[in-house]
């Protein structure tokens, strides 16, 4: 039972960055912009969270910095994808590479070494709602959580509400499906897309902060290790729906937790690598329609040209 609780807490922690980033992906893609840059935005978020925490000694300011850094990185994607109508995938690849280099550069400039930063004194690795730990049995679980885990679920609820229950959400979905139709009823397609891509950056930025501030209290080069792409997988697996993406993230997080703790769980006959490939293979199967069918928003990845033809 103790092992199981620990496994669950670990799964929740591992799912957290995936949830944030997948939600970010949903905002961007629902409005029609493919966001391959999530990985890079996470890197920037993780780095600037630590950087600002180091200088202000306030991890929450660090989170704010991650959000700002994420939004600005996403703004670059937005300009390339929306106004310049560039290839969104190329732009994403470029931003990922840029984030890797710029953070490594700044790391060296600030900490005078490469590889990883020093740990910050105050991070957000502990459970903020300590009273929950008094609950029998489940208390153990809550003790293993971080503020980010709670925030992730709040973000799911808010995303769901915004996308499905507000006029703004209706317009986002319209712009991602049929931008011209939205245009003819007076909706500013570009504006909606800019806002969505930047929201996507904010969420992926928090996701990065949850990796650095929420786990090891430091920034390490390569610490995202493809989590941005797993988040994209979760988004697709969840069919571009916040609840679906959350469930997919939890599933992928759980698979990773099992893989990490395989030996203590007594699972030795399944190679750990097979558990690691699970998110990717699942996504391929869903995308190609072998199990279920995930269909992207119709205008996803297609630049919109204003003007009236």
């Amino acid at each position: 039972m103790v092992i199981f609780i620990a496994l669950l807490a670990s799964a929740l922690r591992l799912a957290t960055p995936l949830i944030f980033s997948a939600l970010g992906g949903i905002f961007s893609e629902r409005s029609g912009v493919v966001n391959i840059a999530i990985e890079g935005i996470m890197i920037n978020g993780a780095f600037f969270a630590i950087l600002v925490t180091k200088f202000t000694d306030s991890p929450w300011l660090g989170v704010l910095a991650a959000m700002v850094a994420g939004a600005l990185t996403a703004l670059l994607l937005a300009v390339l994808a929306i106004h310049l109508r560039g290839n969104q995938v190329v732009a994403g690849v470029a931003i990922n590479l840029f984030a890797t280099s710029i953070t490594a550069f700044l790391l060296e400039m600030v900490w005078k070494r490469s590889g990883q930063t020093d740990a910050v004194a105050h991070a957000l690795t502990g459970n903020p709602l300590t009273f929950l730990e008094k609950i029998p049995v489940l208390g153990e679980l809550f003790a293993g959580l971080t503020p980010f885990v709670y925030l992730a679920f709040v973000a799911v609820a808010i995303t769901y509400y915004v996308i499905y229950k507000t006029p703004f959400g209706l317009r986002i979905r319209a712009v991602g499906e049929h931008p011209r139709a939205a245009d003819t009823v007076g909706i500013n397609v570009y504006k909606i897309r800019y806002i969505c891509v930047m929201i996507s950056g904010v969420l992926a930025g928090i996701s990065g902060a949850s990796l650095s501030l929420g786990t090891v209290s430091l920034f390490r080069e390569g610490m995202t290790s493809g989590k941005g792409f797993i988040a994209i997988a979760a988004m697709i697996f969840g069919k571009w729906h916040p609840i679906g993406a959350m469930l997919a993230s939890l599933f992928f997080g759980f698979a990773e937790a099992v893989q990490i703790q395989a030996s203590s769980l007594g699972i030795n006959n399944i190679p750990s690598e097979f558990l690691q490939t699970l998110p990717y293979i699942a996504t391929i199967l869903v995308l190609s329609g072998f199990i279920g069918r995930a269909v992207a928003p119709k205008a996803d990845g297609i630049p919109y040209e204003k003007g009236h033809r």
Partner: peptide, 14 residues
């Protein structure tokens, strides 16, 4: 100029 996955009402009020 209709958004296919939307309902009739959603399209009308968009």
């Amino acid at each position: 100029m209709l958004v296919e996955p939307f309902t009739v009402t959603e399209n009308i009020i968009l």
